[in-house]
């Protein structure tokens, strides 16, 4: 890994004015995306989806069905991109990996005692190594929010760095669980710590806490990514996860990305959606754009 000079003092807070952030988001939401640019956006969003199943009742059967859906989103539409990845618990990585053989869809595993992160660092790192060993292409870790909220920023830095080390070449996404950090200044701080400690992606949420991804939080994280890029020359990816269910919202996220970080981030290498039901809504809208007829969920396979 590259050596970064001038790591900031994380006790310093980057001031963020929440009212201003909300106004900016609301203004970006007024962009009106029509015609070709809408179709492009829908396809782009589909290619950025991490199809996710993270339930206690997950089984190999369920994961196989999800992997099939990932490769064949909708049989009747030509030129449909496949999704970016399938996101599962570590014990189902192998199943997912086998099901996706021959595709270029990645398998992401949540690890480090997802979703709470409340385990010993050793055991959390063990879990990462296990998932990597099972064949995961990407690891979605959680930070210990308790330590962060106590102000132990070095702990947060170290847990990300240790996880990155355990990942080796495997891609690391760091879940901040922004719903528990509460303030946008905390979101910014956790983003900075994660990026300086080695994250490839920063990700909003586990999906298990409400609120999950929101646009104001995402904007602040995108701005953190932009500032980090200008300081270090390194591009970090962004993944809002949880709560993004429809195409309209997904397109609003893409507008946020385009107008904050520019077009270089508009691809699955640097932007992902963590969602389970979004893909089908995108497909419905794509068919609507092609046929001019509003669609019913009955005609789109659940998995």
């Amino acid at each position: 890994m590259e050596v970064l000079n001038k790591i900031p003092d994380f006790r310093d807070t980057v001031p963020i004015d929440t009212v201003g952030v909300l106004e900016r988001v609301s203004r970006l939401n007024k962009r009106s995306i029509k015609k070709e640019s809408k179709m492009d956006a829908l396809k782009m969003a589909l290619s950025m989806c991490d199809l996710t199943t993270l339930e206690g009742m997950d089984t190999p059967g369920k994961v196989r069905q999800l992997c099939y859906k990932a490769q064949h989103p909708h049989e009747s539409i030509p030129d449909i991109p496949s999704v970016a990845a399938v996101c599962v618990y570590p014990n189902l990585v192998r199943t997912a990996k086998e099901s996706l053989k021959g595709s270029n869809i990645n398998v992401a595993a949540v690890a480090t005692y997802f979703p709470s992160g409340n385990g010993t660092l050793e055991s959390r790192i063990e879990e990462v190594k296990y998932a990597v060993n099972e064949g995961a292409d990407e690891i979605d870790m959680v930070i210990s929010r308790g330590a962060f909220l106590r102000g132990e920023y070095n702990f947060t830095f170290d847990e990300v760095a240790a996880t990155k080390e355990a990942c080796g070449d495997v891609h690391l996404k760091v879940i901040l669980e922004t719903g528990e950090l509460e303030t946008l200044e905390n979101v910014r701080k956790a983003s900075d710590i994660s990026m300086y400690a080695g994250a490839d992606f920063i990700k909003t949420s586990t999906g298990k806490v409400s609120p999950a991804a929101t646009q104001p939080v995402t904007l602040v994280m995108l701005e953190a990514i932009r500032d980090f890029y200008y300081k270090t020359g390194i591009k970090i990816g962004m993944k809002p996860a949880g709560g993004i269910r429809d195409s309209k919202t997904a397109i609003q996220y893409l507008v946020l990305v385009k107008e904050t970080l520019g077009i270089d981030w508009l691809n699955p290498d640097l932007f992902r959606f963590g969602a389970s039901s979004l893909a089908n809504d995108l497909l419905m809208q794509i068919v609507k754009q092609q046929t001019g007829v509003y669609q019913s969920a009955d005609y789109f396979s659940k998995d």
Partner: peptide, 23 residues
């Protein structure tokens, strides 16, 4: 995919996905 470094960071806003007119 891995973290790669550029010497002269620059943001590009046009080209890949431009908004169609919405009059």
């Amino acid at each position: 995919m891995a973290r790669t470094k550029t010497d002269q960071p620059k943001l590009n806003f046009d080209g890949l996905w431009d908004y169609d007119p919405a009059p």
